[in-house]
Write a protein that binds this DNA or RNA. Structure first.
Lengths: 122, 122
DNA sequence: ATTATATATGAACAAGTGCTCACATGATAA
DNA sequence: TTATCATGTGAGCACTTGTTCATATATAAT
């Protein structure tokens, strides 16, 4: 009844036609690896909070720590992670260091994620 | 020279005005927690590969494992994770189980992520 | 100079994650 | 029935991750 069922497994695939259709349409492994790494950055509560704040305004480490209620050390470590992922930049002003988003892409991606989440709440 | 610098720390924040401006604009903790969990799902190479494939076509477990070159067991575990995150659904047909995306949101989110990544490659 | 303040960082550790291995289940074929 | 095939799952384990603690650095104030 189906379309391309062979119902055996002599070849590499059970439903070869579907597979070959897909095979050439997926990005290279290296790209998918980077993509996963990128989403990994958004996959932590502390980091998502940081980014949410920086989405609205730059902020210095001290204030960020107070606002988000995380230790200064934990925050600094996470900021380093975000820096290495090239998601934030910083500028120094006196004793303070102000962090901000490096890229406005993140804005739309997080927003889409939020939209997705909010639907589940209905 | 700055705008709202107080350069002391008696209160809760160094730059109180910036903070209060942000404070009411960030989503609730519960939502941010779910949001991080959502991105966490996209933050693994195997899962991103799975979703990339299902973006194009439904596929049975056996073919998916062959195509992605991961063990059937590892794949089954990841599919369970994706199921629990409500990102994929499945239908049974004979001995095969076909998985597909439950939601088309993921499509646009992954695409945006890809766009972001591809820019770095230039 | 010394002291206080803001931030960064290395080490250690607990918790989480994703894999493999072995086995269970469920469905078809013989 | 028994055998085979496709998939699911629990346990164990190596690896990763995020935090804390202690300490370092850097700037500003006294």
């Amino acid at each position: 009844m189906g379309n391309t069922n062979e119902n055996n497994c002599r070849g590499k695939f059970i439903h070869g036609e579907i597979v070959h259709q897909v095979q050439n349409s997926i990005p290279q492994d290296e790209i998918l690896y980077d993509l996963a790494d990128f989403f990994k950055m958004l996959g932590d509560t502390t980091r998502i909070k940081i980014l949410q704040v920086l989405l609205i305004s730059e902020m210095c480490v001290y204030d960020l720590a107070s606002l988000l209620n995380v230790s200064q050390s934990a925050l600094s470590h996470q900021l380093k992670t975000l820096r290495q992922a090239d998601l934030v930049k910083y500028r120094k002003e006196g004793k303070s260091v102000f962090y901000s988003l490096k890229d406005e892409h993140i804005n739309s991606i997080i927003d889409l994620g939020l939209t997705h989440i909010m639907e589940k709440f209905k």
